[in-house]
């Protein structure tokens, strides 16, 4: 990695960090934090799906595990929020490694991998909904105690900067992966697994590293979600909504690129806010638009926004 690699990321972070100086309304900051959490979850998906070509439909399993772990460790075991956050991320990563080991060892690819990840996330959802330790269907609250030492802040701007810091860190990690041996092997596995195997790439190990990293980043998004909203239930933490969000943003913004998930996340949620102000709040309308966009980007290549811009430039 060179300074030139990091420059766009530093620029992005610097510009984005200025936002709370201009936008002070809580509703807008709320929206910005939520969008950043989605971007972070999507950055996690992008490592495995974008660079590794393994499309998971169950990233909720990682999001939810970290979120619940953070909440439960604080509420039931009195752990401080910061180590609880770290344990949450580690737990998500471990769950990722186990699911990855089971599925990749069995040679599941493509649709089968998507199906099995979906099923794992559903198992977690049903368990969390029925189990005592997660608060069951009533959910779990993190006690409100606004002190920086508890990872709870007065101002939403502080949360915005923390979320932005995590998104920036994920950008750096993604760029570093792109430039690393592991990243090159991962892309080789995506393009042609058999050819990669023939060249001596340990595909199983590469995919396992990718899913563990991917799950950790999406897990960080889940833990941050828990810490920001201070409430979880099984349908939030392990719901299909987050699996879908985590997948849509990179696909629309450009899977397998450093900025794709952030671009996609911002565009999607910007669009959804825009339509809300335009036609009012109709439940499901934003997702209808997301779904149509998903079909369109797959139908009309180049599949993502940067590709569209390139095509438009080439035409002129």
């Amino acid at each position: 990695m060179t300074a030139k690699d990091l420059l766009p990321i530093a620029l992005f972070a610097a510009v984005a960090a200025l936002l709370p100086l201009f936008v002070t309304q809580n509703t807008w900051l709320n929206f910005a934090v939520f969008t950043l959490i989605i971007c972070l979850a999507a950055q996690g998906w992008n490592i495995l799906g974008g660079y590794g070509g393994q499309y998971s439909f169950g990233h909720a399993a990682f999001f939810g595990t970290a979120a619940y772990a953070t909440a439960i460790l604080q509420m039931r075991y009195g752990m401080n929020a910061y180590p609880a956050f770290a344990v949450g991320v580690a737990a998500a990563s471990a769950v990722g490694a186990v699911i990855g080991f089971l599925s990749f060892r069995s040679g599941l690819r493509g649709s089968y991998f998507a199906l099995v990840t979906l099923a794992f996330a559903e198992v977690f959802r049903v368990l969390a909904n029925a189990s005592e330790v997660t608060g069951g269907a009533a959910g779990i609250l993190i006690k409100l105690d606004v002190r920086p030492a508890n990872f709870q802040f007065d101002s939403r701007a502080s949360f915005y900067w923390i979320a932005l810091g995590l998104v920036t860190a994920a950008l750096v990690v993604t760029r570093a992966l792109e430039r690393s041996r592991l990243g090159a092997q991962l892309v080789a596995v995506r393009e042609n697994e058999n050819a990669a195997l023939a060249l001596g790439v340990d595909a199983l190990r590469v995919k396992l590293s990718a899913i563990a990293l991917s799950a950790a980043i999406t897990g960080a998004a889940g833990a941050l979600y828990a810490q920001y909203f201070l409430y979880l239930d099984a349908n939030i933490a392990y719901g299909t909504w987050i699996s879908v969000e985590a997948l849509l943003a990179p696909i629309i913004g450009g899977a397998g690129t450093v900025f794709g998930p952030v671009l996609g996340g911002v565009v999607l949620h910007g669009l959804s806010e825009f339509t809300k102000t335009l036609v009012g709040r109709i439940p499901g309308l934003d997702l209808v638009i997301f779904g149509v966009l998903l079909i369109l980007v797959v139908r009309f290549p180049p599949r993502e926004i940067p590709g569209l811009i390139r095509m438009w430039r080439a035409r002129r």
Binding site: Y55, G110, A114, I282, G284, L287, G291, I295
Partner: peptide, 20 residues
């Protein structure tokens, strides 16, 4: 992978049009 994504997109659209 395209079919995976298109049918997922379809299901999102149908489900949420019904919701709307």
């Amino acid at each position: 992978s395209n079919i995976l994504l298109v049918t997922l997109g379809l299901s999102i659209v149908i489900e949420n049009v019904m919701l709307a």
